[in-house]
Computed example of a mutant assay.
Amino acid sequence: MTVRPAPLPDRTAVPADRPTPIPTRWVGPIRISGNAASGEIHVPLATYETPLWPSVARGAGLSRLVADGIKVTLVDERMTRSVLLEAPDAETAYAAARAIHDRTEELRRLTRRSSRFAELLGIRHEITGPLLFVRFEFATGDAAGHNMATLAADLLLAHLLQHVPGLAYGSVSGNYCTDKKATAINGILGRGKNATAEILVPRSLVAGRLRTTAARIARLNVHKNLVGTLLAGGVRSANAHYANMLLAVYLATGQDAANIVEGSQGITYATDRGGDLYFSCTLPNLVVGTVGNGKHLPAVEAALTRLGCRDERPTGQNARRLAAITAATVLCGELSLMAAQTNPGELMRTHTRIERASGDRHEH
């Protein structure tokens, strides 16, 4: 019998009980003002794309040289879940939809029974043949609200099946929500927090810090983010790389990272105001929360605490603060990249220099 030597251990493997941390750095501070957060705030970015740190840092440094910094206006917030109901025909589905809307106040009362933080904000519907899609929109306090919305929707669905004639169960989620997919409905109606971050950068700072002009950035924004995205068939999306900053913040703060799919939708707007640069990022789908699944992890707890998102505030204010900080972070990275791309070769030179210099040396 041939005895084979035991295989050598794989020294590159990580034990199953020892997760590999994602390289994380605190960047900033970013100067933020607006209706949901204010002050100079450092932000954690968890990413393997090391050039993201200095890129966001450049935008953050610029924010500190402007009186109001980056102004973030939170304009709406709602978490959605759509249920699917089946009827014999479209006529029955339409009658059922009218009956459901007539029961709005009743459904609001029922929603409050599912959670003390859940509030039914609105109901929308769509009919396709005999199929009735009902999109419930909820306020969910400081939670991102995935589970809270599903729990409430499940309760409402059971109630409707019992009290509205002609309907049968289809699904507790009918993809009209829409969760973790880039869709027109989310871009139009919003899902999560809807925020706009904006900054007015004086001509001297555009030239000195960004090494470009307002006219060149505004021109590139039209040609790249608007026309280029249109030709590519983008869905309610006209930006350079929102997803990079969103993923880095989401991972560092315990969010459901798959929500960057709808979160990456949004519009960058830039215009030349007499040599000064007005620059804004509008994000209609910021799905963030400061309580709930994932927020109990020590690193996440520490990050949210340092961000000031675990303070004693009225319900919902901590999540709104996190959304504002996230939107400002997106603007920092978006502005820095757009400025770099107005200069031939700058983007690749910067990436190469930073990645070669950093190697595996990451700060945790």
Rank of each mutant, 00 (worst) to 15 (best):
23 P>F: 04
144 A>L: 08
3 V>I: 12
18 R>C: 06
362 H>M: 14
229 T>W: 15
9 P>G: 05
82 S>W: 01
331 L>H: 01
160 L>M: 11
7 P>D: 12
56 V>L: 10
275 G>D: 07
179 D>S: 04
139 A>M: 13
197 A>K: 04
298 P>S: 03
46 A>P: 15
252 A>G: 02
37 A>C: 07
303 A>S: 09
7 P>M: 06
12 T>I: 07
11 R>L: 14
125 H>T: 11
89 D>C: 04
62 L>N: 10
44 P>T: 00
53 W>E: 01
298 P>G: 03
39 G>E: 10
180 K>Y: 13
137 E>Q: 13
276 D>W: 09
138 F>M: 09
93 A>C: 05
164 V>R: 05
159 H>V: 09
78 R>K: 11
42 H>A: 12
355 E>V: 08
330 V>W: 02
361 R>C: 11
262 E>L: 13
1 M>K: 08
96 A>K: 02
171 S>Y: 04
285 N>Y: 05
294 G>Y: 07
146 H>C: 12
184 A>V: 14
270 A>M: 00
136 F>V: 12
212 T>K: 00
92 T>C: 05
116 R>G: 14
295 K>P: 07
236 R>I: 01
245 M>V: 15
112 R>T: 10
33 S>L: 03
213 T>D: 03
220 L>G: 00
267 I>Y: 09
312 E>W: 14
150 T>D: 01
96 A>S: 02
100 I>H: 00
147 N>S: 12
342 T>D: 02
262 E>M: 13
159 H>F: 07
198 E>P: 15
108 R>T: 13
364 H>I: 06
138 F>P: 02
277 L>H: 08
212 T>L: 07
80 T>M: 08
98 R>E: 11
14 V>H: 03
136 F>G: 12
38 S>D: 10
285 N>P: 01
74 L>F: 02
291 V>H: 03
162 Q>M: 13
272 D>T: 02
210 L>S: 06
99 A>T: 05
145 G>S: 08
92 T>R: 10
293 N>Q: 09
293 N>T: 06
305 T>L: 07
356 R>C: 00
180 K>Q: 10
270 A>V: 08
9 P>E: 15
248 A>G: 05
245 M>W: 05
120 L>P: 15
221 N>G: 00
318 N>G: 02
322 L>T: 03
129 G>M: 09
207 A>V: 13
301 E>W: 05
107 L>M: 10
162 Q>N: 12
55 S>C: 09
194 N>M: 15
163 H>S: 13
43 V>E: 03
107 L>Y: 03
323 A>N: 06
340 A>Y: 02
12 T>K: 06
62 L>T: 09
239 N>G: 02
342 T>N: 06
158 A>N: 07
145 G>T: 01
62 L>G: 10
228 G>T: 06
318 N>C: 09
4 R>A: 15
272 D>M: 08
180 K>P: 05
24 T>P: 08
304 L>S: 03
18 R>F: 05
122 G>H: 05
245 M>E: 12
157 L>I: 14
182 A>R: 15
35 N>F: 14
268 T>M: 12
301 E>T: 13
115 S>F: 11
59 G>P: 10
68 D>C: 13
2 T>R: 12
184 A>T: 14
203 R>W: 05
256 D>M: 11
197 A>I: 10
121 L>V: 09
133 F>Q: 04
274 G>L: 12
